[in-house]
Amino acid sequence: MLESKSKTRNAFTLVELLVVIAIIGVLVGLLLPAVQAAREAARRMQCSNNLKQIGLAAMNYESTFRVMPPRRNMHSGSRRGWGPTILPYIEQAALQGDYRFDKDFYAPENEKNIAIALPLFLCPSGTGARNVTVIQNGITSEGKAGDYFGPNSFRSDLYGTASLSGNNKITAMDDLPRFRKLAHITDGLSNTMLITEQAGRADFYIRGRMQPNNSGLSQAASWGSWPSYQVFQVQIAGADGITRDGPGGSCTINCNNSQGIYSFHPGGAYAVFVDGSVHFLNESLDAEVLISLITINGHEVISQEF
């Protein structure tokens, strides 16, 4: 009499394998958004910290000289932005020691300085340490981009070229030879923006999309230069993110990175205020509130959370 022998199976069937693969695919699909969200949360925290450190550096500068750092020096032969000015207060004293303040930021003597990528001036949600080419007065220099800029004015069809205070250029920092004192900021330090995001240069972005060319982008510059030779306005844009439409427009934050507040964070952008506090500005921010936060002496009552 023959006895049957049981056979031990050592492998999956095709159906079982397909089921396992499907389950793994579902789990990855569920986990990937969570991982991406966690990474963006970490990047947002780092960006906020960058602006916090920049704000503290500006206030330490003010404590030393009793004036705010100059937004830009327009004098021929020593043109520059606020970046080189605060280097000693962001633990970059050695770099400032090499920077020639008696030369333009794009001069050959300073090119090696502005070609250094400083992580503090770059938002980690952006596109990395980008190279920018600066062409000024027949001189071409290479530098590294910066993602944080100080506005010097705004423009909106809601108010034309006049702000609520009657002057659209009264902002937290001023251009040499003028100086901005804290006493001039009568709207309150916690209600006045100092530095905002304007990320992604030297590429041109409109509402999250990189454009095929940079023809609509105001000239890019390094962290050492902006806005030394070019106006950085906060412009209220239309629904397309670039053109100005009707009174007030309909886009205030993350419209485009040519003129305005722009980031790669979903839903808004960060700004540091004169008191050192950092706020996330929602894309739904009202144009009138945004303009009120830019000027220093409009005496507006800000009723909307920003």
Rank of each mutant, 00 (worst) to 15 (best):
P124W: 05
P124R: 02
P124I: 08
S125T: 03
G126S: 08
G128W: 07
A129M: 06
A129F: 10
R130A: 12
N131Y: 03
N131V: 14
N131W: 02
V132W: 04
V132R: 05
T133F: 05
T133L: 11
V134Q: 02
I135C: 02
Q136W: 11
Q136D: 09
Q136T: 06
N137E: 15
N137D: 15
G138R: 12
I139N: 08
T140N: 15
T140C: 13
T140P: 14
S141E: 06
E142F: 07
G143T: 00
K144R: 14
K144Q: 11
K144C: 02
K144E: 07
A145E: 04
G146N: 04
G146W: 03
G146I: 05
G146L: 02
G146T: 11
D147A: 06
Y148V: 01
Y148P: 04
F149N: 09
F149W: 12
G150A: 13
P151F: 13
N152A: 10
S153Y: 03
F154D: 00
F154R: 00
F154W: 08
F154Q: 03
R155A: 07
R155Q: 11
R155L: 11
S156M: 02
S156H: 05
D157K: 10
L158Q: 07
Y159F: 09
Y159N: 11
Y159L: 13
G160Q: 02
T161Y: 01
T161H: 00
A162V: 09
A162D: 12
S163C: 11
S163E: 01
S163D: 11
G166V: 06
N167M: 06
N167Q: 07
N167S: 13
N167F: 07
N168T: 06
N168P: 08
N168W: 05
N168V: 05
I170A: 15
T171S: 07
A172V: 12
A172P: 10
M173W: 03
M173N: 05
M173Y: 03
D174W: 09
D174M: 10
D174I: 00
L176G: 01
P177S: 10
R178Q: 13
R178P: 06
R178C: 07
R178A: 15
F179M: 13
R180S: 03
K181E: 12
K181H: 14
L182M: 13
L182K: 14
L182I: 15
L182E: 09
A183C: 11
H184F: 12
I185G: 04
I185A: 06
L189R: 09
L189Y: 11
S190D: 15
S190Y: 09
S190R: 14
N191A: 00
N191G: 05
N191E: 09
T192A: 05
M193A: 01
M193F: 06
M193Y: 01
M193D: 03
L194A: 00
L194S: 00
I195H: 05
T196P: 02
T196V: 12
E197I: 07
E197D: 07
Q198G: 02
A199F: 07
G200T: 03
